[in-house]
Design a protein around this nucleic acid. Structure first.
Length: 341
DNA sequence: AGTCCACCGGAAAACATGGCAA
DNA sequence: TTGCCATGTTTTCCGGTGGACT
């Protein structure tokens, strides 16, 4: 008997991944109690975002060694299938953030995997897809959609009250009695609820607020600490992103800061000109404007800057860039790379 | 009504890198 | 070694595009 394929929807921080992993772990234990071998593989397709890598990840779990590049995808598929077949067991593949992979290379691989049971002799394969994009399923091929959606589960976002309960529970375990007041919990819950009920966000907020209170020798967590925690989380996130930017990305970001400092308007062309100067000074070959434009989009996507397209008629169409993070944070992060004047 | 700016953003292709298999 | 395959980044090429200006 093969377990049904399953589709799970829900926004970030609603516990989809945690629940899936928990249930599968239990299932594995139950299985071995009853003498059924169950293998399950968890793949996050945002990170392993090609069918090649997803397959090799599955293979890895089944004990097949697959080089991280070099083979044709068809070959990897064949190896994984034969490994699966020789196991005579139930294999469950969990694909988290499945929409990322499908957006990149279509649903071909899903189709093949859902049909794989016909190729397999003694083993059974089922697929669990997780996504936070509800509309995603509609973009799938009808055959894939129907077989993947044999069962569906929806995780609704948490409301402020539920977040409060979660935080309360956590606070009871992690803090001394009385250290966290009702007001602080409510504040964390409210701030997180505003961001579509992300429980992870709420917990981070409470934790960091606690750390701040602790650092300052306060034996109670205050609302002020929560606000500061929010800023700190934001700042850490920003500098983390900036630090891991490729060198040209850093230079472009630096150019944007410079232009805005001069009180000029940061348009794509302006940025590119400034960037090119700076790159030359650093003895680097500048990248093309096309590429620079992509980097600007990337910076926009991760939320470091915001870019809005404007039409200025006779004076062309361009994007005007604003910073979403304070320039001090950016300059400080860039300084670590020796980018400064 | 039509021009034309200053870009946008898609597509293809080049290039670099790394690896298997025979 | 040679040929094939995959990934990721950047370049090259180029068809749009919205609205101020003529």
């Amino acid at each position: 008997m093969r377990p049904s394929n399953l589709f799970i929807y829900g926004l970030t921080g609603t516990g989809k991944t945690a629940v899936a992993k928990f249930v599968l772990k239990r299932l594995g234990i139950k299985g071995s109690e009853r003498g059924v071998r169950i293998y399950w593989v968890y793949v996050n397709t945002r990170i392993e975002n090609t069918s090649y890598r997803v397959l090799s990840r599955i293979g890895e779990h089944l004990g097949v060694r697959i080089p991280f590049t070099g083979l044709s995808t068809a070959e990897v598929y064949r190896r994984v299938m034969s490994a699966m077949d020789s196991r005579s067991s139930i294999v469950i593949i969990v694909m988290d953030e499945i929409d990322y992979m499908v957006k990149r290379e279509g649903d071909e691989i899903l189709y093949r995997l859902t049909r794989a049971n016909e190729e397999l002799g003694s083993s059974r394969l089922s697929i669990v897809g997780i996504t936070n994009d509800i509309k995603f399923v509609e973009t799938l091929d009808a055959r894939v959609r129907s077989s993947l959606g044999e069962e569906e589960i929806i995780f609704p976002p948490y409301n402020a009250q539920q977040l409060r309960d979660i935080l309360m529970e956590r606070a009871r375990i992690a803090f001394k009695p009385g250290a966290v007041g009702e007001d602080v919990i409510s504040l964390c819950a409210a701030l997180a609820a505003r961001e579509h009920g992300d429980a992870r966000r709420a917990l981070d907020l409470l934790r960091v607020a606690g750390e701040i209170a602790d650092r300052e020798g306060s034996d109670k967590v205050l609302e002020e600490h929560v606000y500061r925690a929010r800023n700190e989380i934001e700042r850490d996130r920003a500098s983390e992103i900036i630090l891991t930017l490729p060198i040209h990305g850093k230079l472009i970001l630096y150019s944007i800061v410079k232009i805005l400092e001069d009180g000029r308007e940061a348009t794509t062309g302006e940025i590119y000109l400034t960037y090119r100067e700076i790159a030359r000074k650093q003895g680097l070959e500048p990248i093309t404007q096309r590429r620079a434009s992509d980097i600007i989009s990337e910076l926009d996507m991760v939320g470091i800057i915001s870019a809005i397209t404007v039409n200025r008629g006779r004076y062309g169409k361009t994007r005007i860039i604003k910073l979403q993070v304070s320039p001090e944070v950016i300059l400080e992060a860039l300084k670590a790379d020796g980018i400064s004047d």
